[in-house]
Write a protein that binds this DNA or RNA. Sequence first.
RNA 1: GCCAAAGUGGCUCAGGGGUAGAGCAAUUCACUCGUAAUGAAUAGGUCGCGGGUUCGAUUCCCGCCUUUGGCUCCA
Length: 608
Amino acid sequence: MEKEEVLKVYRHSLAHILAKAVIEIYGKEVQYAIGPEIEDGCYYDFVLPRTVTEEDFPAIEEKMHEIIKRREDWTRKVISRDEALELFKDQKFKHELIVDLPADETISIYYTGDDYVDLCRGPHVDNSQELFSAAFKIKNVSGAYWRGDEKRDQLQRIYLFAFPSKDELKAHLAWLKEAQERDHKKIGTALDLFMFRETAPGMAYWLPRGWILYQELMKYSREIQGAHGYTEISAPLINNKKLWLISGHWAHYQNNMFIVPGITKGVNATDAVQGEEAPEQYAVDAEDTMAAKPMNCPNAMMSYKRTMHSYKELPIRYSEYDVLHRKEKSGQMNGLFRVQEFRQDDDHTFVTPDQIKDEIKDVIAIADEIYKTFGITYRAEFSTRPDDFMGDIESWNSAEASLKAILDEKYGDGNYEINEGDGAFYGPKIDLQIKDALGREWQCGTVQLDFQLPHNFELTFVDKDGAQKMPIVIHRAIFGSFERFIGIITEHFKGAFPFWLNPYQVAVVPIRPEHNEYAQKVADELTKAGVRVESDLTDVNMRDKIKKFKQMKDPYILVVGDKEAAENTVSVNVRGSNKQLQGVALDKFVELCKKLNAERTLELPQEI
RNA sequence: GCCAAAGUGGCUCAGGGGUAGAGCAAUUCACUCGUAAUGAAUAGGUCGCGGGUUCGAUUCCCGCCUUUGGCUCCA
């Protein structure tokens, strides 16, 4: 068997052992649902008479070891649907699974010993003793909904790390520990980039160092988009609900919006504010109710609509970096990855149908250029027409064909995922997914075709034949939200950002106070060259200063003393090594910094 | 929203029914130093918020807030 196959069999078998252990501990009334293998092990879902907590883990693990040591045979049996339904008549989830199996499906069951049976396709080990060498550990327990549906039973899911050997488990746990060190929430605090406070749940406070980085990203984005013919607009942060009624957000997205109720004037007051200080009553259904924007598109439509447009003007590209607010359900927030306030490198491009292909191609080219700058790899996903689509099928078909042709050309047939029927109701889309340190995928870039908003806002352009036609809108973002992207790259670089992006690029440390003058001169020359410099001219031990700047992960720390001042040189301490480059000419160093900034170099040169 | 866990000085964390402790950071003094932790002293916390039990709660109980992991992988 292939190594991967072995791993699958191990994990799958261990899931059954887990179930058997849980049943032995919690009794026969346990309802067991499903137990697939996953990335680093497996899990099993149960309904249990009481909740499992961390304190229960050792007992479960011990029971699993005990079961494995029984050297029980695993026997496979093929049975009829009726036999299966009878056998699992007290197991509601198994029962449902059997009912849902296709009519011609072979139904197989596995006995582990003679007191535990599970519905399963297999394959498994033949005897528990094959699992002697397997290494496993309960990872955690969480709630999970039966079949992922929140309206159905809430199950307790027990996760297991599972590997064929102890060494592999150990290696995995070490990897996990390293990954946790990369956590952007930790690094963000350590590097003083951003913070979160209860005064604004899920909304980052950007601190001086972090805000420099943020702005560098926006600067880079604007530079690239400017070169690709984008024009930037900015629009109101809160809009009257009239806008959201037109766009459809009021009907479809209200739960995700922060709403500012208006003052009623004889309208029903549903959310009355009590007390003497607030005699007016605020209500969501008041005419002057406003809402913070969760998306930029409606205002972009308004901007387009202000005047007539000729086909000669298209494509029109309105990019936008405004702040967006989306209200999330509690429990959905996650550091910078999922926030309630963020900015996107957003854009809405208005095109004619025959411009779609070239335009999307250009978007993908921009995405490639940007992601390459960070050395980040992504996975493309193509989502096609859903059942509740809007518009006519011909438009959909041709739009999907255009997108598919671009994806095939770019990534090759089969090198991107297709999610049939997963598109938005207003159009098909391409999403670009990037992994965080823990391997979780987050959607960053997105390209969406939209036939709906132009319709809702009655957008037109005058075509060659003089007829008024409806443009198609392309929504797209490459970084996605800057917040999320910064989270991703913080973990990717472990806080050691590329030179061009690091909040401060060079730190200057004089050896003694008498070297302050020269240190200042060095700092001034670098600043003049557009380099972000910080220096410490206080009367403190130079070692302490170096330590402080190293902790902030400044790429280059310059130490200057008698020798450097005399020779107009600097001694360079390079991030990521203990290397010190002595006697580097100041001019030469300034030139290097300018080059690194101009080229947005990914790697930090270790030699100068 | 749901399941589980957590919240103690700026940061990292210990503690535990009798009103709190360490390291780092900060401040002061000494050291003036050639590339990641000099020494000494000082200051800093109504232990997330509200309620309950108790003579007494940061500790136990309840509610809320915030945060973390999971709720996608389908016998």
